[in-house]
C-alpha cells in the first residue's frame, strides 16, 4: 500500500497541516509520497521532504498551478494517481475544493474529515456537527480522504528524501483566477495557533473585538469568532470557528461572549483547555468549559489583559 498526500502550502511555504496529514497517512501504510503542486514551490518541496516517513516528494512547479484551481489540480492528481492505494489531503478549503473532484473522476466515494485511523480501510469521522462519531469502512479499491489536521500530531523531522520534478501540461479552459484578498494579520493562523481567543455576539460590535487584541498579543493567540458574530457582520467569515468554519484544537481556547451553540462547539470542543467568559451563567458554553467566569466581558477583558 502506498499513500499520496497532497501538500498544503501557499507556494512560498509548506503549511504545518501537511505534517499532520502525513501523521494520519503513516497509520495506514509505510510508504508515503507527497505531491507539491504550485508555483515557485522549491522551498515548500524541501520542507515536505523533511517530514518523517515521507519516501518521495513529487513537485509540479508551474504558473498554471499558482492558485491551485480545482479543475487543473484535480486533473494532475488523477494523472499521477496510478499505483496509490490512498490519496490524502487536509480538510482545508483547498483540500475540500479539490479532493471530491478527484474522487469523482476516479469513481471512488470520498471519506471526509477523518479524525482517527482504525486500519487501512476503516476511519472515524464526525457527523451532525460532531454530535456523533461515525466509524466507516471504505469498500473502494482506491481510497480518497480528507483529514482533519487538528485531530493528528505533527511528524518528526527526517533528513531530506528524494524530490522529483514532474511536468504536466494543463489545458484549463473552465476557470480562471481573478484575485485574492488576503486577510492581513500578524497573528498566527487559527488552525495552527497554540492559543485561540474568540468573540461572539456578546462583543456587541466589530470595534469591540479590539478588546481581544491585547490579550491575544500577550498569549501569542489567534483571534476567532462565532458564527453569530460573523452573521452580525462584526468580523470576516475567515475568523469563524465552528461546524462550517474552522475546526481548531489549541492548547487553550478562550470563548468570550459566546453562548455555545452546537455549531460553535463543533469547531472547538477538542481544545485541550477551554475558558468561557459569559454574563449568562446558564449559557451552554459553560458545560464544555474547564474554567468558567460569569460576568460582564467589558469588565473582565481589560482585567484579564492586565493580569497576564
Amino acid at each position: 500500500m502506498k499513500v499520496l498526500v497532497i501538500a498544503e502550502h501557499d507556494n512560498g511555504q509548506l503549511k504545518a497541516e501537511t505534517s499532520k496529514v502525513v501523521n494520519a497517512a503513516v497509520k495506514v501504510a509505510s510508504s508515503i509520497e507527497v505531491l507539491v503542486a504550485g508555483h515557485n514551490v522549491s522551498e515548500a518541496a524541501v520542507s515536505a521532504s523533511e517530514i518523517d516517513g515521507v519516501a518521495k516528494v513529487h513537485v509540479v512547479d508551474s504558473a498554471a498551478f499558482e492558485h491551485q484551481l480545482a479543475e487543473n489540480t484535480a486533473d494532475l492528481v488523477v494523472e499521477i494517481s496510478g499505483g496509490y492505494s490512498h490519496i490524502f489531503a487536509s480538510a482545508s478549503t483547498t483540500g475540500k475544493n479539490i479532493l471530491p473532484r478527484v474522487a469523482a473522476l476516479l469513481d471512488t466515494s470520498q471519506i471526509s474529515e477523518i479524525i482517527d485511523v482504525i486500519d487501512s480501510d476503516t476511519f472515524k469521522r464526525p457527523i451532525y456537527a460532531g454530535n456523533a462519531i461515525a466509524t466507516v469502512k471504505s469498500l473502494d479499491a482506491l481510497k480518497v480522504l480528507t483529514v482533519r489536521a487538528s485531530a493528528f500530531d505533527s511528524q518528526a523531522q527526517q533528513s531530506p528524501c528524494e524530490v522529483e520534478t514532474l511536468s504536466f501540461d494543463v489545458t484549463n479552459t473552465l476557470s480562471e483566477f481573478v484575485s485574492i484578498e488576503q486577510t492581513e494579520s500578524e497573528r498566527p493562523e487559527l488552525n495552527a495557533a497554540p492559543v485561540v481567543i474568540s468573540g461572539g455576539r456578546g462583543m456587541q460590535n466589530g470595534e469591540n473585538f479590539a478588546l481581544l487584541n491585547g490579550i491575544a498579543d500577550k498569549l501569542g493567540a489567534a483571534i476567532g469568532a462565532s458564527r453569530a458574530a460573523v452573521d452580525a457582520g462584526f468580523v470576516p467569515n475567515d475568523m469563524q470557528v465552528g461546524q462550517t468554519g474552522k475546526i481548531v484544537a489549541p492548547d487553550l481556547y478562550i470563548a468570550v461572549g459566546i453562548s455555545g451553540a452546537i455549531q460553535h462547539l463543533a469547531g472547538m470542543k477538542d481544545s485541550k483547555v477551554i475558558v468561557a467568559i459569559n454574563k449568562d451563567p446558564d449559557a451552554p458554553i459553560f458545560q464544555v468549559a474547564d474554567y468558567g467566569l460569569v460576568g460582564d466581558l467589558f469588565d473582565m477583558l481589560p482585567e484579564l489583559e492586565s493580569a497576564l
Binding site: 471512488t108 466515494s109 471519506i111 476503516t122 464526525p126 457527523i127 460532531g130 454530535n131 456523533a132 462519531i133 461515525a134 466509524t135 466507516v136 469502512k137 471504505s138 469498500l139 473502494d140 470542543k269 477551554i274 451563567p281 459553560f286 458545560q287 464544555v288 468549559a289 474547564d290 474554567y291 468558567g292 467566569l293 460569569v294
Partner: peptide, 19 residues
C-alpha cells in the same frame, strides 16, 4: 461504497469549574 460500522457519542468533556 462505504459501510457504516457504528455511530457513537463523542467523548464527553469532564465538567469544569466556575472561577
Amino acid at each position: 461504497r462505504v459501510e457504516l460500522i457504528k455511530v457513537e457519542e463523542p467523548s464527553k468533556r469532564e465538567s469544569g469549574v466556575i472561577v
